[in-house]
Design a binder for these strands. Structure first.
Length: 425
RNA sequence: GGAGAGGUGGCAGAGUGGUCGAAUGCAACGGCUUGCUAAGCCGUCAUAUGGGGUAACCUGUAUCGAGGGUUCGAAUCCCUCCCUCUCCGCCA
């Protein structure tokens, strides 16, 4: 959410920022509602002031045995007027809130302007593997090695739900354990294990609602709980409605979670095998820091993600996302795409975003600065990293002509010392 | 799921209709003093938002789990919801 004062002072800037993100907003309406709300508030508070004062007088007058009926009648009228104004204010506030939640964060000046076609490649690492045979896609290899069972996954849940088996299941476990150990150890993140269902306030806090509500699985029995699309939601909301001290910033958190996405309308396009699924595993990195530090923390976060892709020896490139391709809440976003030889494509394996104060204002995450003033924090996050497409790249890039797959060095300790995946004799 | 108890400031804990935004204690912070295993004394010490002032600060309003109601006036009375604890039931 934006600061109302900022919006009031810079309506043109906000309009322009929304245009850059191709989001329609009604800035004028918001300003008008806010002005009207202020008027009402002023009148209401003046009346309340009068009432508070007179009520004290009544108390002392009664003590002295004086008759206070007429003045009480007068105050009753004041009370009624206050109630009316309160009702009006509530209505205005609600409409204003709805409008404000629909205004996106403004993109940073160094984000390329436009749609996904103007995304900038800002880094490339590693060499695409070359083969003396035609590399196969992961769905062939994985089925052959008995690592996933696509048909039965569909039977028990539906399309987009993956049933991992044997070494496939073990590889998942190996990867997220490796990721967690790597980030907690080498990068000193604090590990959390969050609930996978969260309430509506949390979803609003990180900005999934209202914009993306249709993409979320919802348990509507009466609990109003949502399955998390990413651990970003519970982890960023840990400090919702809290005031942090300067000493504890920046917070560096990491968490494994399963992630649930309806991916409504995405069927048919790049969805084979593990490319786009409704449930997947991910390790997420979240940072909360003071305002001045967020862009520097973004670069560090980016490095943390690069480190882990390099450890896995996966060729990748980093994109500086365009204003329209980044998310609603983001100010700047890097996407990490790993090269995968079988499908012959770069696959998005991580997003690394600075949300500046946008999520923190929604979630009310603040800190006291050195002058003891309360400031809105900045939040960031990155996947570190999402598993399915990482698995795809590992399988497809490390495949051999005989159908076996080499396991990256760093994962072998997590696979019980195994150096390759192959069909059991 | 059933029965009971309870939700007050960073924590503990008073307060049951009127100078209560809230006693007191602990913790924390600032200062003073001091000599004996660290203590004593003084002061400061919630959040949001509006107004005034360069500023320290002054000031209006709201907030005692949340929302509604009664009343001139609500932490205190009434209603609804949420949460915590204890006991019982169920259960991985």
């Amino acid at each position: 959410m934006l600061d109302m004062r900022f919006l009031k002072d810079n309506p043109e800037f906000v309009r322009e920022a929304a245009r850059l993100k191709a989001v329609k907003v009604d800035v004028d309406r918001a300003i008008k509602l806010d002005a009207r709300r202020r008027e009402i508030l002023l009148e209401k508070e003046n009346l309340q002031n009068e009432r508070n004062r007179v009520s004290k007088d009544i108390a002392s007058a009664k003590k002295n045995g004086q008759d206070t009926t007429s003045i009480q009648d007068e105050m009753k009228k004041v009370g009624e007027r206050v109630s009316t104004l309160e009702g009006e204010e509530r209505d205005l506030q609600q409409e204003l809130q709805t409008l404000m939640l629909a205004i996106p964060n403004h993109p940073s000046p160094d984000s390329p302007v436009g749609d996904e076609s103007v995304n900038q490649v800002v880094a490339e690492w590693g060499k695409k593997p070359e083969f003396s045979f035609k590399p196969r896609p992961h769905w062939d290899i994985c089925e052959e090695l008995g690592m996933i069972d696509l048909k039965r996954g569909v039977k028990i849940s539906g399309p987009g739900f993956i049933l991992y088996r044997g070494l496939g299941a073990k590889l998942e476990r190996a990867l997220y354990n490796f990721f967690l150990d790597f980030h907690t150890g080498r990068h000193s993140y604090t590990e959390w294990f969050p609930p996978f269902l969260v309430n509506r306030e949390s979803m609003i806090g990180t900005g999934q609602i209202p914009k993306m509500e249709e993409d979320m699985y919802h348990c509507d029995k009466e609990d109003d709980l949502f399955l998390i699309p990413t651990a970003e939601v519970p982890i960023t909301n840990i400090h919702r409605d809290e005031i942090l001290t300067l000493a504890e910033l920046p917070l560096k958190y990491c968490a494994y979670s399963a992630c649930f996405r309806r991916e409504a309308g995405a069927a048919g396009k790049d969805t084979r095998g593990l490319l786009r699924v409704h449930q997947f595993n991910k390790v997420e990195l979240v940072k909360v820091c003071r305002a001045e530090e967020s862009y520097r923390e973004l670069e560090k976060l980016r490095q943390d993600v690069e480190d882990i892709l390099q450890a896995l020896e996966l060729p990748y490139r980093v994109l500086n996302l365009s204003t329209q391709d980044m998310s609603f809440s983001a100010a700047k976003c890097y996407d990490f795409e790993v090269w995968s030889a079988g499908v012959g494509k770069y696959l998005e394996a991580s997003s690394c975003s600075n949300f500046t104060d946008y999520q923190a204002r929604r979630a009310n995450i603040r800190y006291k600065d050195e002058n003891k003033k309360t400031q809105i924090a900045h939040t960031l996050n990155a996947s570190g990293v999402a598993l399915p497409r990482t698995v795809v790249a590992i399988i497809e890039n490390n495949q051999r002509e005989d159908g076996s797959v080499a396991i990256p060095e760093v994962l072998r300790p997590y696979m019980g010392g195994l150096a390759e995946l192959r069909v059991a004799k």
